[in-house]
């Protein structure tokens, strides 16, 4: 057999293969949506971006994780004291932790929502998205999935740290603690989902209409806290016969009311509760806000494209 002509060039290396045709698999719409999710995650967390882009999200993440670590540390210190001290009344546990970091989480959602939508729109990148096998609905579904994953991670990862920390420090033992608190496994995610539905839907809605990330973030916080103030004023002053219904404007309060319902707690002093509404009404408001937001965001993007 003749010697292969390649053998005389064994030491040769290819420095540049140049532009080539592609004959491999193509992943279609699903692959495109997965790419949008991955890139959205990177954008929110500032990954593969300049250092200054990482500062704000990672500061908030550090606050959330740090507070969980501090609570576990307090539990550890109190458990090593010679006297028995019940820290559950002094420091927040699972349900209370939601209150503990709700403002930080609100800031994170107000930052993440605009980051996901605004630059694509203002920098013209939608032209690239929609010239690929990706429709408006695919794009929005992928962005919403990214937003949900980021925000739910923000709520849940510190809770998982808390849970594992408390379990490790439990006098009953790690496994006994986990076995005795299985209800936490659905209650915490359910409450986190309610918070996401309210914060997230509002953040997406505002981010769809405002063309500056900072202004959108400020707008989200202002709307949530401002409506609280409006509802409170109406309730305190009692100007009109329909004042009771204005308490439902306190959007920021509804997730807390529903969370208390999920954890079977005595209702905290929320504006809707003071007006005589039950948690079911708050849940309906949360669902209603999410539905209205989905419809308006979809309408906005159909018009844009």
């Amino acid at each position: 057999m003749a010697e292969s002509p390649v053998s005389s060039h064994d030491s040769a290396i290819i420095l540049d293969r140049g532009y080539r045709s592609y004959h491999g698999p193509r992943t279609g719409r699903r692959g495109a949506m997965a790419a949008v999710v991955k890139e959205g995650y990177r954008r929110v967390l500032g990954l593969r971006r300049k250092a200054k882009r990482k500062l704000f999200p990672w500061t908030l993440i550090a606050l959330a994780l740090g507070s969980a670590a501090v609570l576990v540390a307090i539990e550890w210190v109190s458990s090593s004291l010679p006297i028995s001290l019940d820290t559950s009344d002094l420091f927040p546990r699972y349900s209370g932790y939601f209150d503990f970091i709700s403002n930080v989480a609100l800031l994170f959602a107000a930052f993440a929502g605009p980051q996901l939508l605004v630059p694509d729109r203002t920098q013209g990148v939608l032209n690239v998205y929609f010239s690929r096998p990706l429709g408006v609905r695919d794009y929005l579904v992928a962005k919403a999935a990214t937003f949900a994953a980021v925000i739910l991670s923000f709520w849940l990862v510190p809770q998982i740290l808390l849970h594992l920390g408390y379990a490790a420090l439990s006098p009953a033992g790690f496994l006994s603690y986990l076995g005795g608190t299985t209800d936490i496994l659905w209650k915490v995610p359910a409450a986190a989902l309610v918070y996401f539905a309210m914060h997230g839907s509002l953040a997406f809605l505002v981010a769809s209409f405002v063309n500056r990330v900072g202004a959108a973030a400020a707008g989200i916080v202002a709307v949530l806290l401002g409506l609280n103030l409006v509802a409170l004023l109406f309730q305190e002053v009692g100007l009109a016969p329909g004042t009771k219904w204005t308490s439902l404007l306190a959007l920021e309060q509804h997730p807390r009311f529903v969370r208390d319902w999920i954890f079977d707690l005595e209702a905290s002093i929320t504006i809707p509760a003071q007006a005589g509404f039950g948690p079911e009404a708050s849940l309906m408001v949360v669902i209603g806000c999410a539905v209205v937001s989905v419809l308006l965001v979809g309408w906005r993007y159909r018009r844009l494209t």
């Binding site: 698999p25 193509r26 013209g124 032209n127 690929r132």
Partner: peptide
Amino acid sequence: RCLPLDQTAADFVAYAAELAGIP
């Protein structure tokens, strides 16, 4: 305009390829 200014050229072009279904 159609470029995200906070991404590197390599990241964006790779992303554009993934959007078209390239692994």
